[in-house]
Structures are given as C-alpha cells and as structure tokens.
C-alpha cells in the first residue's frame, strides 16, 4: 500500500490535469485550481521541514566546529533576524518602510545582484573555452557567435557600411538569430514537448515510479 496509494494519487492528479484542459464544464473547470491550491498548502507545510533541516544542519556544524562553521552562524543569525522582524511587522510586514522591507532592499537585493553580476565574468570564461575552433562544428559556432556579437554593436554596421542595405552586419546577425537559431531551438522544443508527454504518461500509468523512492 505504501507504493500503491502514491501511485493512485499521482495517476488521478495527472488525469485530472489532462481532462480539465479539454472540458470547461463544472466541476472539471475548478479541478485545476483546487489541485494547485492543495499543492500550495502542502508546499507551505513542507517549508517547515526545510527550515528545520537548515537549522539542524547548521547547528550541527557549529557544535562540531566543522570547517566553515562561521557560515553556519551567519545562516542561523540571518534566519532568526529576518523571521523575527518579519513577524514583528504584522500583516503589513512587506510594506514600504518596514524593517523587513529595509532588510530585503538593503541586504538581500544587493547580495542577489552581486551573485547575478558574476554571470558576466562566467559568460566570458565559458565563451573563451566554447569558441575555440577545435573542429568544424566548433568553428561554425565561433563564426556564428562572432557575427552575432559584432552585429549587435554599432561598430558592426560601421565596418560594413560600404555594403548595400540589408547585407550589413546587423542584418546578418538578425538573420542568424531568426532562422538557423530559431529552427534549431524549435527542433529542441518539439523534442522536449514529446519527452514531456512520454514522461507524463509513464508517471500517470505508473510505469515510471523512481520518484517514489527508486524501484
């Protein structure tokens, strides 16, 4: 039963989501919303598990003085600080000017932006490795990337301004993005859509059950 009940729930939920998409009649039209609400409730309850796990792991690190235990202290302090300030703010804790709002805007947002900004450097290093002309495909990738990047900046058109309108670097970049790139991406998307259908069917039919704890 430990395996059958989750399989049954999965199958029912899967079928309901398919059926409600094609039947607008009541009660099918409400099922999507109900299931989504239930999922949100389960998700909200599960956050307690997550938070407890985070606190437990961090506390163990501090207690055992594991390498990097200082970071665990930062996690616990931050966790309680934001939770207490959030609760102290009452129902309007997210309003402008509250302590929670201040912490969010002046600590979380800058830290988050910093992480995001690192992406610029990683794009450069990854591009450097990816665009080495090791073989025919990589050379093609290098050339396509070169033309697209050049076509996206004013100097691209400046270098090719002697060419007729429509054949300049920006036009070439647009052509690469609109045709070969879009065609390739759509092919991948068709494969993904079919993969989704196939995987969903396997899950609904109970053929695929490794997400329930292996098999």
């Amino acid at each position: 039963m430990r395996r059958e009940i989750p399989l049954l729930i999965t199958a029912i939920a899967g079928v309901v989501f398919v059926v409600q998409y094609f039947i607008p009649h009541s009660p099918f039209n409400h099922l999507d919303g109900w299931f989504s609400d239930w999922f949100s409730i389960v998700q909200a309850c599960a956050i307690v598990l997550g938070s407890l796990n985070l606190l437990m792991i961090s506390s163990q690190k501090i207690a055992r003085k594991k390498e990097g235990w200082g970071y665990a202290v930062v996690i616990i302090v931050s966790f309680f600080l934001i939770t207490i300030i959030g609760f102290a703010g009452g129902e309007e804790f997210r309003d402008v000017g509250t302590g929670f709002d201040w912490l969010y805007n002046y600590t979380y947002v800058p830290l988050s932006s910093t992480m995001y900004a690192i992406l610029a450097f990683f794009v450069a290093s990854a591009s450097y490795r990816a665009f080495r002309a090791r073989n025919a495909e990589a050379t093609l990738l290098l050339l396509a990337a070169f033309f697209v990047m050049l076509g996206r900046v004013p100097i691209g058109d400046l270098l090719t301004m002697w060419m007729p309108e429509g054949f300049r670097m920006s036009n070439l970049a647009t052509w690469i993005m609109d045709f070969p790139q879009t065609a390739g991406q759509r092919a991948i998307m068709i494969g993904i859509a079919l993969g989704l259908v196939s995987t969903s069917l396997r899950v609904i039919l109970g053929i695929e059950r490794s997400h329930l704890g292996g098999e």
């Binding site: 991948i188 494969g191 993904i192 079919l194 993969g195 989704l196 196939s198 995987t199 396997r202 490794s210």
Partner: peptide
C-alpha cells in the same frame, strides 16, 4: 542531456 534526453534518461 539536451531536452528530451533528460526525459529519456529514466527509461
């Protein structure tokens, strides 16, 4: 694993 290969992995 490009797109569908991820979904095919289990099978």
């Amino acid at each position: 694993l490009i797109g569908e290969e991820l979904f095919a992995a289990s099978a």
